[in-house]
């Protein structure tokens, strides 16, 4: 599968991103429950970008592990304000935007690998991987 980049600029792009992710996950052979997990993660993390950074992108890549597992990697990146305190942002129920504070910690629970990099004033990149089990 080729890498794909999906712009995230408007609320509608959130819906576009999650449809793309579901299609890709289905093509890669993920079970329904994992398609749903990946779609939900895409929705949460894409919304964070549109809401907090204004704009950014989602990059989708097929992934393979050293042990031969196949999967899907999703990279959400923006050049927004960054996250002041990543540990705090990962805490259940913490939100600076009036949300439920479930997006980041909830997304982490639905994937196998989760990495968040953020530099104040420069942007944020969240990388997640789900393997086909």
């Amino acid at each position: 599968m080729e890498n794909r980049s999906i712009p995230l600029e408007t609320e509608r792009d959130i819906a576009v991103a999650r449809n793309e992710v579901r299609n890709i996950a289905s093509q890669l052979g993920f079970r329904i429950i994992d398609q749903t997990r990946l779609t939900t993660v895409a929705s949460e993390l894409a919304r964070n970008i549109v809401k907090y950074a204004g704009r950014g992108r989602l990059i989708t890549q097929s992934a393979s592990s050293a042990t031969g597992k196949r999967g899907l990697r999703l990279i959400f990146e923006d050049e927004g304000p960054g996250i002041a305190d990543v540990d705090l942002a990962m805490r259940d129920g913490y939100s600076t935007g009036g949300g439920l504070g479930k997006g980041l910690p909830g997304s982490k629970r639905m994937v196998d690998e989760f990495k968040i990099e953020s530099i104040a004033g420069q942007g944020t990149r969240v990388t997640v991987v789900r393997w086909i089990h």
């Binding site: 329904i32 429950i33 749903t36 997990r37 939900t40 949460e44 909830g106 629970r109 639905m110």
Partner: peptide, 14 residues
């Protein structure tokens, strides 16, 4: 509610 949706809701913590 679809089963997959119920599972993700719980994992999200909703």
């Amino acid at each position: 509610m679809q089963p997959a949706v119920a599972i993700t809701l719980v994992e999200l913590g909703l």
